[in-house]
């Protein structure tokens, strides 16, 4: 059950979508530079859901194990950003990023690091854009690569804390001629989501001004 105060209005959702879209545009542009191939990103679909539901959403779509690059952020609002893709894509992505001239052994050797670096670039693009657009600053942790199922990726870590909400951004990124796809998710607790909502309102006021309905 999502409390009323963090459910986003249509316009707030629009604003968040656009903001994420900017970040995604940058991420796409960055990924293009890294991969040197066409990268398609879907317009982000945004949903605020429980962690359980987020896990189910991802499990419904991906049957295999997942790999995620995780970055925690703190600042005006705090949370955790995840770049998620099917584990079977992992080496493909590494090969795409690190160049096809690498041998299979080399690919495996730098896999972890290449994933972390890719996640770093993409998540930073999104988070930094959000921070800039919302006129707040965020500190980002060093990216970490984690593996597991949808359920384990979204499992609440600290005991006793109530289940967080997930700002679930479906961003399908598909790389032409490679079976690579992924998702971006942001997990935030209720206070952070409430702050985000407030910042979105500020943003809308700034941008829309007198045209506010």
């Amino acid at each position: 059950m999502i409390p009323i105060d963090v459910s986003l209005s249509e316009l707030e959702r629009d604003a968040l979508t656009e903001i994420v879209n900017i970040g995604v545009s940058r991420a796409a542009s960055n990924l293009r530079k890294m991969i040197g191939d066409q990268v398609f990103l879907s317009v982000p679909a945004i949903e605020v859901v429980s962690q359980t539901r987020a896990a189910r959403l991802i499990t419904e779509r991906e049957v295999s194990d997942l790999v995620a690059v995780r970055q925690d952020f703190t600042g005006a609002f705090a949370g955790r950003a995840l770049l998620i893709f099917p584990e079977e894509n992992s080496l493909d992505l590494v090969r795409a990023v690190a160049g096809s001239e690498l041998s299979a052994d080399e690919v495996i050797e730098i896999e972890q690091e290449a994933l972390a670096e890719t996640g770093n670039v993409i998540l930073n693009s999104c988070l930094a854009t959000m921070a800039n657009m919302l006129k707040r600053s965020l500190s980002m942790s060093i990216p970490q690569v984690v593996r597991g199922t949808g359920a384990s990726l979204f499992a609440a870590e600290e005991q006793g804390t109530e289940e967080g909400l997930v700002l679930f951004l479906y961003i399908d990124f598909a790389v032409r001629s490679r079976d690579i796809r992924g998702y971006i998710a942001m997990i935030m607790d209720l206070p952070s989501l409430a702050i985000l909502k407030g910042l979105l309102e500020d943003f809308i006021t700034r941008v829309v001004g007198d045209d506010l309905p």
Partner: peptide
């Protein structure tokens, strides 16, 4: 060098 293109950075 960074992908963190925040105005603050």
């Amino acid at each position: 060098i960074t992908a963190n293109i925040q105005d603050e950075i």
